[in-house]
Design a protein around this nucleic acid. Structure first.
Length: 560
DNA sequence: GCTAATGTCTCCTGTGGCAA
DNA sequence: TTGCCACAGGAGACATTAGC
């Protein structure tokens, strides 16, 4: 299955070569990289993102070193195209850090490894499959979000030669489906085809547990766009996505060279990529000016297209639409978000939430934990409030900043204190409740991790009415017109954090300094955690106070 | 009894939210 | 950046019903 027809409808010969990320990247970013706007303010990546990237590179270096040790005689290419072509021509079994270019297809790429396959190409050359090293899981526990049964081996098995077609499927785990990984491998496969060294479509990903998972790029994998009967292979999806970016790049190049004044093929639309894109400061004002629909939660590009087709092209138009005429629940919710965003109110009651059902108790404990990058909790922070006594809330942290973290001991101290506090409340004939802002369920997950480890029954506590997820409560009652994260909801209710940048990821960086002995960063982490538990208490108190005065989302109208 | 239409249920899959 | 979870919509399997 080769790309036997041009992927683009335009003359792309002057467009720059696009790398493997182009097919998954925002197409407008591809355009702006070629035709950058005048005033781009470079936004440095968040520190925690940079740390993750660095960890990913370190992992890759380590894996590559292990592969080199297993192979014994690995050539050193470090991105040399001529050396890569020479190595392939010579049939070198494993080629690291390859560099491939395809000027006709306007492609360039650097696969981590090229591994020779047992059967040659129809042209009699050595066939290769591309292999990428990724610092994330390549296996899944179940069918959901997977490619199917796993075909896998140890990463060092590349030293002995691989025959993916002859490998048996592994019992148990499935192959995780990650679109960005798959399209990247498809990009390398097309590069190998260009040079006449492609295999039949096998590729591999070495994951964080050093499993080498084999994938078939020709297998039906993706739901065809607006086609419910067929499925596309990874290569077909890649061709469609890459071909569109080529169109975008070709037009951008022509505009830069003054050959056309045709409008760009893409307009700014919000996606998760925006948060780490250097053009975010350019696109967001444009989206605000255009009253762009994708500024609303859950309005993806596909939903936006459906709304445009029905004549709803702005947030204001959607806010004014008759809810009963909107086709799906998701779009009706998007219309409610539009009402909040266009009316300028910070918070509104969701439909059907007339009575505030917020569990309260005489003794209330707000809980928030912080954990290390490898998933061990070093801090359980608690804010205890005795509402009957009327005394000020007290922050009680259970923490270990030692280099040799004993996270189980931290949990034991936290759990014992929580149960003692609960028992004392009940003995004094007072009601008790503990609150968290769970969202993704991190607190529950860690309780279930540590509870069995120390032999205590956390399950009956988690499922009891005494353990309250305030995020769930908030979701059932209010909308911000956007995120329902603690930072947003508490902020809309007037809470202010002491630290300028109280992001969860930032705290991981502070933790590294704290473990190294920085008392300043230890204090900062405790303050940050104390603010988080104070914020959940604030949400509970303020929500009860302002509930009666909050507008109903159905009553909101766009202003201005 | 066979077939097609319809309804119900479960699983799959994509997406978003949240945390670290 | 990754990982996990929740949710919603769609697809497919299966059961039921109506018409012949």
């Amino acid at each position: 299955m080769t790309a036997d027809k041009p992927l683009s409808n335009r003359d792309v010969r002057r467009a720059p070569l696009l790398d493997a990320r182009a097919a998954t990247r925002c197409p407008l970013r591809t355009h702006l990289m070629i035709e950058p706007p005048e005033h781009v303010v470079e936004q440095p990546l968040p520190v925690d993102v940079l740390v993750r990237i660095e960890e990913g590179r370190a992992f890759e270096d380590q894996v590559m070193a292990e592969v080199a040790a297993a192979v014994g005689d690995l050539p050193t290419l470090t991105g040399d195209e001529a050396a890569t072509l020479a190595a392939m021509a010579a049939g070198v079994p494993v080629i690291p850090q390859a560099e491939l270019r395809d000027h006709e297809g306007r492609r360039t790429g650097r696969p981590d490894l090229l591994v020779a396959l047992p059967d040659p190409t129809p042209g009699g050359r050595t066939a290769y499959m591309p292999v990428e090293v990724k610092a994330h899981l390549v296996t899944a526990k179940a069918k959901g979000g997977s490619l199917g049964p796993l075909r896998a081996c140890a990463h060092t098995d590349v030293a002995d030669g691989l025959d993916p077609a002859a490998m048996a499927e592994v019992e148990g785990p499935w192959t995780r489906k990650r679109t960005d990984d798959l399209l990247q491998l498809a990009h390398y496969q097309r590069l190998l085809e260009h040079h006449g060294h492609a295999g039949p479509g096998w590729a591999g990903v070495i994951g964080s547990d050093r499993t080498l998972a084999l994938v078939d790029l020709t297998a039906p994998t993706f739901q065809s766009w607006r086609n419910t009967t067929g499925r596309w292979s990874t290569l077909e999806k890649y061709d469609r996505e890459f071909g569109f970016r080529l169109d975008v790049a070709a037009l951008a190049t022509d505009r830069v060279d003054g050959l056309t004044d045709e409008d760009p093929l893409v307009v700014p639309a919000r996606s998760s990529e925006c948060d780490r894109c250097r053009f975010e400061g350019v696109c967001t004002p444009r989206m605000e000016d255009a009253d762009e629909l994708t500024l609303l939660p859950k309005v993806t590009w596909d939903v936006r297209q459906r709304l445009h087709a029905s004549g709803l092209t702005t947030r204001t138009a959607l806010a004014l639409a008759d809810p009963t005429a909107l086709p799906t629940k998701a779009i009706r919710e998007a219309a409610d978000h539009a009402r909040v965003q266009t009316s300028g109110v910070p918070l509104a009651k969701v439909r059907g939430a007339d009575v505030l059902e917020l569990p309260r108790a005489d003794v209330e404990v707000d809980v928030d934990m912080e954990s290390t990058a490898d998933g061990r909790v070093y801090l359980w922070g608690c804010l205890v409030t005795d509402r009957r006594a009327g005394t000020p809330p007290e922050y009680v942290p259970f923490v270990d900043f030692a280099p040799e973290l004993d996270d189980t001991a931290v949990f034991v101290a936290f759990w014992d204190w929580l149960q003692r506090t609960r028992k004392a409340a009940i003995d004094a004939e007072r009601s008790f409740a503990a609150y968290c802002w769970a969202g993704g369920g991190a607190e529950d997950r860690y309780l279930r991790l540590y509870g069995p480890r120390i032999g205590v029954d956390v399950e009956s506590f988690i499922t009891s009415p005494e353990w309250v997820d305030l995020h769930r409560v908030a979701r059932a009652h209010v909308t911000t017109g956007g995120s329902l994260g603690l930072k947003v909801v508490a902020g809309r209710l007037g809470f202010q954090w002491r630290d300028d940048d109280p992001g969860g990821g930032q705290s991981m960086v502070w933790y590294g300094d704290a473990v190294a002995g920085s008392h300043e960063q230890q204090r900062r982490l405790l303050d940050y955690n104390a603010d988080d538990v104070e914020a959940t208490r604030w949400v509970r108190e303020r929500l009860a106070e302002v509930w009666a005065d909050l507008p109903r989302v159905g009553d909101l109208m766009p202003t201005g």
